[in-house]
Nucleic acid binder design. Structure first.
Length: 156
DNA sequence: GCCAACGTTGGC
DNA sequence: GCCAACGTTGGC
């Protein structure tokens, strides 16, 4: 099993929205970056776990945990002209963009902010914390994953 | 293949 | 709103 971190702007799609989607979950659509696409398409497996990270908001950070609920499949929004993520250059016979289904697992016991993550030297290697990182899908090592789960338990 | 111009992300 | 960092595009 592998671990991941997926970013979303809570104004667009938040952990609450994912929880509201229930057991069926939802497709993690709209990823339009090749590196992120490759991880979605080739790296993620059903049963993997991922942190739900809130970006582009007042206090960015990790809000919860979700589960990868399917293998990757083509992202239908790329073929929908009315969709913001429409890609007219993508060939239906050879789709360019993929998604996985995700489902809500749980909220963290407390929100762990980006600022807090940056304060922990053992997490320094996390791709999320590297300078200039903008990838919306990044792998998380087991070591970092477990460290954050311990952080979650700590009182502030 | 290089690189300038432009677009996007995302923290601050 | 600003801006650093990075990705993409397209002319050459």
């Amino acid at each position: 099993m592998n671990y991941w971190l997926l970013k979303s702007e809570p104004d667009v799609f938040s952990l609450d929205d994912l929880e509201a989607a229930g057991r069926r979950g939802t497709g993690w659509d709209g990823v339009r970056n090749y590196q992120a696409r490759n991880m979605l398409r080739d790296g993620m497996r059903k049963g993997d776990l991922a942190f739900f990270y809130h970006s582009g908001c007042e206090i960015p950070g990790i809000a919860g945990i979700m589960e990868v609920a399917s293998a990757s499949r083509p992202d239908a929004t790329q073929f929908d002209p009315s969709d913001h993520h429409h890609d007219p250059d993508s060939d239906p016979d050879d789709p360019r963009w993929f998604l996985v289904d995700v489902r809500f697992k749980r909220r963290l016991r407390r929100f762990v902010s980006l600022e807090e993550l940056r304060g922990h030297r053992p997490l320094a290697g996390m791709q999320l914390l590297k300078r200039g990182n903008r990838l919306s899908v990044t792998p998380v090592s087991k070591k970092h994953w477990n460290y954050i789960l311990k952080l979650e338990q700590k009182k502030t």
